[in-house]
């Protein structure tokens, strides 16, 4: 079985220098636990220093597709990954666009099953089972057959620590590639984002009244003072049941 792990350098939140992305490292560590032939791929314009963290944390050899900074990685990666059974990547890269779109685009292009935000992967018979992380601590188990594309949650696995020996032994194999041009982007300095607000034609007086009466704002809560503790406990349980907050 051929496994490909996609990595890309992230921007360090404090220093702003390139470093290994958390989710990509988790994907690398998860792939190393699986049986199969592992290849690490990168597509983009980063130099050796930006990829060094991955080598130092156990990537071995990184296959790099050299693209110009303003071109799309999708077509180059898509053709390089033909014939790969399983593609693992971080749920979101910490650099570049960080849009989280790549696994979706790759799954569509390769015709593979998509397993988003995976915490664990295991084999059962001929199929693969993935545990997906959902909000509020819910874990969903999904089953799919190869080929598949999985985006990996940063908490899925921990990569080995940084090692100078591994960095020295690691190799980056570079290959030129071409990609479609990305839509033009204008970079601007950071500031507070302005929310869309509906133009309101009401008078100042009406706005003041809205502030007093609350308009459609949340109605004040119910206050229960009557009864003993047992009755009050029943009120709370009724409230929890009414809003389906408990399952009994």
């Amino acid at each position: 079985m051929k496994i490909a792990v996609l990595v890309s350098p992230a921007v360090h939140p404090v220093s702003g220098r390139p470093c290994a992305g958390e989710a990509d490292l988790a994907a690398l560590a998860l792939a190393q636990r699986l049986p199969g032939e592992l290849q690490v791929w990168y597509a983009g314009a980063a130099d050796d220093a930006a990829l060094a963290d991955y080598l130092a944390r156990g990537a071995g050899t990184i296959h790099s597709l050299n693209l110009s900074p303003d071109s799309d990685v999708l077509s180059a990666l898509g053709s390089a990954l033909q014939g790969v059974d399983m593609v693992l990547c971080g749920a979101r890269s910490g650099g570049g666009d960080g849009s989280g779109l790549l696994p979706y685009q790759l799954a569509e292009q390769l015709g593979a099953a998509l397993l988003p935000d995976v915490l664990d992967l295991s084999k059962s018979d001929r199929q693969w089972r993935a545990v997906q992380a959902l909000p509020k601590g819910v874990r969903r188990t999904l089953q799919a057959s190869l080929p598949l594309v999985a985006s990996v949650n940063p908490r899925a696995a921990t990569a080995p620590g940084w090692s100078y020996a591994r960095l020295q032994q690691g190799k980056i194999r570079r290959k030129a590639a071409t990609g479609a041009a990305l839509a033009p982007v204008v970079l601007e300095p950071s500031r507070r984002a302005r929310a869309l607000v509906a133009a309101s034609k009401v008078s100042g007086h009406a706005r003041m009244q809205g502030a007093i009466a609350g308009g459609d704002a949340k109605a004040a809560g119910v206050v229960v003072k009557q009864g003993d503790s047992v009755e009050k406990a029943q009120v709370v349980l009724d409230y929890l049941r009414q809003h389906q907050l408990v399952d009994f």
Partner: peptide, 21 residues
């Protein structure tokens, strides 16, 4: 994060905003 007349803005990792169509 922002929809304006000249396009839409999102935060760019390691930079401020990126403005696109």
């Amino acid at each position: 994060v922002e929809i304006a007349a000249d396009g839409v803005r999102r935060r760019q990792p390691g930079a401020g905003f990126s403005l696109r169509e």
